[in-house]
Amino acid sequence: MYRIIKKLLGNSASLIGLLLLLVFILIAIIAPYIAPPLFPDPYQIPRMSWDIEPQPPGFSITDDMRFIYESLGKPVTREQAIFGTAQGGYDIFYGLIWGTRTAFRVGIITVVFSMFIGIIVGSIAAYFGGWIDEVLMRLTDIFLSIPFLVAAMVLTTILGRGLDKVIIALVAFGWMGYARVIRGSILSTKEEAYVMAAKALGVKDFRIIAFHLLPNTIFPVLVQASMNIGSMVVTAAALSFLGVGAPLGYADWGQMVSFARNWIIGAPGKAGEYWYAVFFPGIFIILFVLSWNLVGDTLRDILDPRLRGEL
């Protein structure tokens, strides 16, 4: 373990990744202080105006909006939208800050749950083998045979809008990779002497899987998981882009980018006049995914047994 941490810190790429992650964690923690919420639901992005057209960084809150917030007993603490406003007058800065929490939630919950399902399915299939293996693996094949994005879109459309629905959809069609990996590694370790010994001693199947097999096979899954956190956030963003993600006005990076979809170019002669609408959300997504990938990539190199001792 110590060796892993040392390597992670020693490699400049992963160091950058870790630092970035730290920054994001920090943002998520102190969100209520840098962007105090104006609504009971903090994930509801406050509007700075009723304008549909995005407004540039430094845009001041309009009078009717100030009136609204003051009448609601919420004095406006931030006069300006320092990153501008997105389509519909939503404060981009606020959306990005609280969106960090959303990103962690989506990424981590999705990956943890799909990993959990994957581990259960994969280990049961590998350990018991025979027809159980056959049934579970064919089931996995069926789920794999539906294109991930389309399946997730269908499920979110059916369940309705909302981040929880997105997570359910991503988990329902995201566990198969883990199941395959864990099955593969358990198949190769289950014949080893210490497992045989445990079996001979009459240790229960469940205990063998949980305490003997999994600890020795879980590393590749963890690496895969860490890299998937980033890609899950991108997939959730893609769902928002395709119009089936988080509800309108919810602090979610993907939605902020999809707000920018129709404004990406700007009027001729003023190319990129709405640059802020795509730049800030875009950079947040890219850096977030990048940080996980940098860490995950290095982890993989470290844990890849074939490369052991080379780094």
């Binding site: 893609a238 980018v257 850096l287």
Partner: peptide, 13 residues
């Protein structure tokens, strides 16, 4: 990795 981290819809646009 940076390429990998760029969402397709942003890149495409």
């Amino acid at each position: 990795i940076i390429g990998w981290s760029l969402p397709t819809f942003i890149f495409g646009l």
